[in-house]
Amino acid sequence: MSAQDLDGGSDAETDGSGEMPKPHTIRLELVDEPGQLLAALKPISDNGGNLLSIFHERGSLTPRGHIPVEVDLECPPDRFERIVEALREAGVNVIRAGAEHFGEEVMVILVGDIVDSDLSDTLHRIESSADATLQDLSLSAREGTDEASSARLRLAVRSGRVDETLSVVRDLAAEKGLHVVEPLAEGSQ
């Protein structure tokens, strides 16, 4: 069963395949020369990316003596590859720009009367109040048992917002009488 079946097949926001802009983080290394930052940002806007923030660590240097810059941007999913390519074509050193590096990913499992507690509303409110994007949803129920059903949510979260997201999920779950199995962020390697 997919999210759409439960949602009544309504929207593209929850299935991750639509054209809604999504946040991404790109880490660049710039040579310490005038005009470098501007030159690095141009390929992003030229290719349909919307700059959200730029973190320019001018004081710190990479082992190679370059300046690390972290760029948060928003673009439709299908434009992102093109943006990274354009950056590289422009001679910008892109350190990290893979799907796994776009901010952080959080997985939680909700347990209880998932469907009766209005799953669509739960997902919508997580996305709107936690600034998170649902990437993937799976449901599990065992027929013929009275075991509670569960839903696994994979959320893309902006860097540094994991705690905030988990706290939104916790509050919502408490309100709806659901239990949350949270991920252990650190130390689980």
Binding site: I109, V111, S138, S140, V181
Partner: peptide, 12 residues
């Protein structure tokens, strides 16, 4: 409050 369904989803 951890049902088998939660462990199934985790394992997937």
């Amino acid at each position: 409050n951890v049902p088998g369904t939660a462990l199934d989803l985790a394992a997937e």
